[in-house]
Design a protein around this nucleic acid. Structure first.
Lengths: 282, 282
DNA sequence: GTTCCGCATGAATCGATAG
DNA sequence: ACTATCGATTCATGCGGAA
């Protein structure tokens, strides 16, 4: 049996660890960096006012390691400060463009079951930004991989289904964005839009997963082929890496937290693939 | 019978006509200005690169006429140029903050039926921004007015929903927009989120509206009381004014296009309320 | 009266063609 | 090379006519 090195984990600060990665060797970057003033426990917290300054060196390294045909997907949402939405995400987009990134698209992640709560001056926040950046206007995109079952087709077929089937909870349907009943019905599909409907997964209490697996899975399928290389420079609980391996991609992860690194190594080792980890962890 | 003057229409350029409106006399501004390079026929088109420069004088006047407790809701979406999302909307937010506006919130309008099309490098655009700006951190907000029925309600009303909703997103189907909320009193209600699901109304009108009535209706209910004053400085087909009158608010509209002004006057006059129009129209 | 089916209609975007 | 115009692509919705 021939086994390639399918996982690499670097344990350390992304700004340093990224330097160990070869130029133009990554096909897709999907990450959810520590939000400003969030996750203080594991990352030390970055103040909103210095967020751009903190992130730009990372963005520069990410641009270096990304292939010209590659894509960078950044999951982020600005926090509320003094009753206002902070503008560091807007400023970050402008700065990244100035440094050469193309801001190709902004997807919306609609969180179907968002965090509960009530405030006198605002409603619950049920969406996050998924910013797509590229190095070039010609990038790889495999749209057929994320097609969804189509409305009209459902119309003609639904008549023969029972009421319970119609209102069946789509979250039980497994992969995809909660609408994938294409397995048991026809094959008429349509292309998705730039709004992604996806429930957050709240059951996991060990590690606070930044996003549910279906989110990176969608982008891995859309922007890479099997054998391509997927990087998450703030891997956290390793959702992106896990999904990449599941789809036969090569996974590279970075995290400053050693406990996270070890936990991810342990989880991924069960996938029985070649695994490399930085010296600090061993 | 006591009849007040319930509608005012100014026919002319917003930058000039706004000067005729008294300081701090408006409770809510809801508008969808002509997007960059769009609607050239009726508005002459504004180039993306000059959009901020064009809009800022309007924003300044809007800030002057708004009450300290009032709210400004701006519906806008950046266009694609050279394969990138243009950044004029981001720059506009930053500029408005510099001029004193508070950027309180960004709502997402999810357009369930967005424009069709297929391209090698992007999906269909299915959302627009609804930017909430305020003059002060203390503004009027009546959250109970936009509560939605939850849970089994959707189930019992499934037969009235589109087949696409059933198959794709049964849990969120029919979020209650445009429904008579009082009709559902007694059911379990919940507060909405900052994501609004709403289809555009395309075919059925003579003059196509920028947004469906349910959109301004939601904000009028949320941010004003009966008798308050609602302004749309780019009224177009007058959807905002119509909805404001329907809810017993006072409506003020501005549009540079005389045909639109006349059509709105005609439509609103059937509501049998006091009506004022600028001299140019008479 | 219902339900069903066909049809027109969009704040779009890309690539090719023309000046 | 750089801008302006045009055709092709595509799908949820509501309307009207038909069964």
């Amino acid at each position: 049996m021939f086994m390639t090195e399918s996982v690499k984990i670097f344990c350390g600060d992304a700004r340093n660890e990224l330097k160990k990665i070869t130029d133009e060797s990554i096909d897709l970057i999907v990450t959810s960096p520590p939000y400003a003033d969030q996750r203080k426990f594991s990352y030390g917290g970055v103040s909103p006012d210095k967020y751009v300054e903190w992130f730009m060196p990372v963005a520069a390294e990410l641009r270096r390691v990304l292939k010209p045909t590659g894509t960078f997907v950044l999951n982020i949402k600005e926090k509320v400060q003094n009753g206002e939405r902070h503008v560091y995400v807007l400023e970050l987009i402008l700065e990244m463009r100035k440094s050469g990134w193309l801001w190709t698209e902004e997807f919306i992640w609609h969180k179907k079951n968002c965090y509960p709560g009530k405030w006198p001056n605002r409603f619950r926040d049920a969406w996050e930004r998924l910013l797509q950046f590229n190095k070039s206007r010609k990038f790889n995109m495999y749209q057929e991989e994320v097609m969804e079952p189509m409305g009209n087709w459902a119309k003609s077929r639904l008549k023969n289904l029972s009421e319970t089937d119609k209102i069946r909870d789509p979250s039980k349907a497994g992969s995809g964005f909660g609408k994938n009943i294409s397995h048991w019905l026809g094959r008429e599909m349509s292309y998705p839009t730039n709004v992604l409907h996806l429930a957050t997964e709240c059951g996991n209490k060990n590690h606070s997963a930044a996003f549910p697996p279906a989110l990176p899975r969608w982008f891995v399928r859309l922007f890479t082929r099997p054998g391509d290389v997927v990087l998450d420079p703030f891997m956290g609980s390793g959702t992106t890496l896990d999904v990449a391996l599941e789809l036969d991609r090569i996974a590279v992860g970075i995290d400053v937290n050693e406990d996270y690194c070890r936990a991810v190594m342990e989880k991924l080792s069960s996938r029985n693939v070649g695994l490399f980890a930085s010296a600090r962890m061993l």
